[in-house]
Simulated scan of single mutants.
Amino acid sequence: MVYYSTIVNGSLEKVWKQLLLKIEHPENFVPGVSNVNIFEKNPDFVLRQMTVTSAENSTILKEKITFIPYKIRFLLLEHPTMEGYVDNDCKYISENETELTFTINWKDKVELTEINNQELVKNAVLKTKQFIENNNETTT
């Protein structure tokens, strides 16, 4: 498990609304995302498939996303090499500051070893922070 936290200049309510937006529009938050398809959406969870392209390869993955204030969990249902989940948490600091933490708990399916990529989680948090701070609208 690897995690990274930062302070976002924005209210807890704004950060939470933007994190909810990430469920249907991950391309604003995650580099290399395309072909996002929502298969099911209800008050308890969302089933999503998307393609993530990096310099090395292109991967199609399916996720079950659950959300309760102020945590979103992205559980991998189908991925060629990994299993596990990512948590996005936000916590009140002050009226205009919110702590944002991403925790990645991925394992290699074959070797069952933890995927421990600190740079990946840091970049994901900082990209999300930048998007939230630059987006004045809080539409979901």
Rank of each mutant, 00 (worst) to 15 (best):
K14M: 02
F131A: 06
N136F: 13
K109C: 01
N35T: 00
T113E: 14
K22I: 03
V121M: 01
V15Q: 00
Y70W: 14
L76D: 06
D87T: 13
K14D: 08
D87V: 08
Y3T: 13
N35H: 07
P26I: 07
F39D: 12
N37H: 09
N123I: 01
E13M: 07
K127V: 01
T59I: 15
E27D: 13
F29L: 08
F39C: 05
Y3F: 10
M50C: 14
V33R: 10
K64N: 06
I38P: 11
Q118L: 10
I115R: 04
K41N: 11
M82E: 15
K14G: 13
T101I: 11
N88M: 10
N123G: 04
I23L: 05
P43M: 06
K129Q: 13
S54H: 02
N96K: 15
A55Q: 12
V110D: 02
S54K: 01
K22S: 15
N35M: 02
I68V: 11
T140H: 06
L112T: 00
K71H: 05
N9Y: 01
F131C: 09
Q130Y: 12
T81V: 10
N134M: 08
L61Q: 15
M50A: 12
Y70F: 15
E99Y: 12
V46G: 01
K91R: 14
P43D: 07
D89C: 10
N57S: 15
Q130R: 13
F74Y: 15
F102Y: 15
D108F: 00
N117M: 05
N134V: 05
F29W: 08
Q118M: 04
I7A: 04
L100A: 07
P43V: 06
K127E: 08
V8D: 02
K122S: 06
T98F: 00
V33C: 10
N123L: 09
E63L: 08
I72K: 04
E13Q: 05
N28Q: 11
L120E: 10
K91L: 07
L126N: 03
H79C: 03
V121I: 11
I7R: 12
V36I: 11
K129M: 04
L76M: 14
C90F: 10
H79A: 03
